[in-house]
Amino acid sequence: MTPSLRSAGPAPDVVGRLQALFQELRADNLALLDGVYATGVTFEDPLHRVEGLAELKAYFGRLYAAVESIRFDFDTVIAGPGEAMLTWTMRMRHGRLRSGEELALPGATHIRFAERVHYHRDYFDAGALLYERLPVLGTVIRAIRRRV
Rank of each mutant, 00 (worst) to 15 (best):
G82D: 05
A65K: 10
R91P: 01
Y64L: 15
R62S: 07
E68G: 08
G107Y: 09
D73T: 03
A79D: 12
E83F: 13
T87A: 00
W88Q: 10
D73N: 00
I70V: 15
W88D: 00
F74I: 05
M85I: 11
G107K: 14
E83L: 08
M90C: 11
Y64Q: 13
W88K: 08
V77S: 04
A108C: 04
R71N: 07
E68D: 10
A66G: 08
L63K: 08
W88M: 13
G95D: 09
F72K: 10
Y64I: 10
G61Y: 10
S69M: 04
R71H: 11
M92G: 04
T87I: 12
L63T: 08
A108L: 01
E83W: 12
L97C: 10
R96M: 15
M90S: 07
A108E: 07
S69Y: 09
V67G: 10
L63F: 09
G61L: 14
A66I: 14
R98G: 14
T76Q: 13
R62F: 08
G107I: 04
F74M: 03
T87R: 09
R93T: 11
F60I: 13
T76H: 03
M85D: 10
G100N: 06
R96T: 10
P81A: 01
P106L: 05
A104R: 01
L103V: 01
E101P: 05
M92C: 07
F72D: 03
E83H: 15
H94D: 10
A108H: 02
T87S: 13
G61P: 06
D75R: 05
E68P: 13
G82V: 02
M85L: 12
W88H: 08
A84P: 08
M90V: 01
S99P: 05
D73G: 01
Y64W: 14
P81I: 06
R91I: 13
H94E: 15
G82S: 11
E83T: 05
R96D: 14
F72I: 06
W88I: 05
L103P: 00
V77F: 12
M92N: 13
F60T: 07
S69H: 11
G61E: 03
P81T: 11
P106R: 09
H94I: 15
E83N: 15
A84K: 13
V67S: 12
R93K: 15
R96G: 11
E102G: 05
S99F: 04
G95A: 14
M85P: 04
G80L: 15
Y59L: 11
G95S: 14
V77L: 06
D75E: 09
S99V: 07
P106Y: 06
F72A: 03
A65L: 14
A84W: 09
P81K: 00
W88R: 15
G107E: 07
G82Q: 07
R96N: 14
R71D: 06
R98M: 15
R62N: 11
G100S: 09
G80Q: 13
I78L: 04
M92S: 04
R62I: 07
T87M: 00
T89G: 00
T76A: 11
L105W: 06
M92F: 05
Y59Q: 09
L86R: 02
Y59V: 09
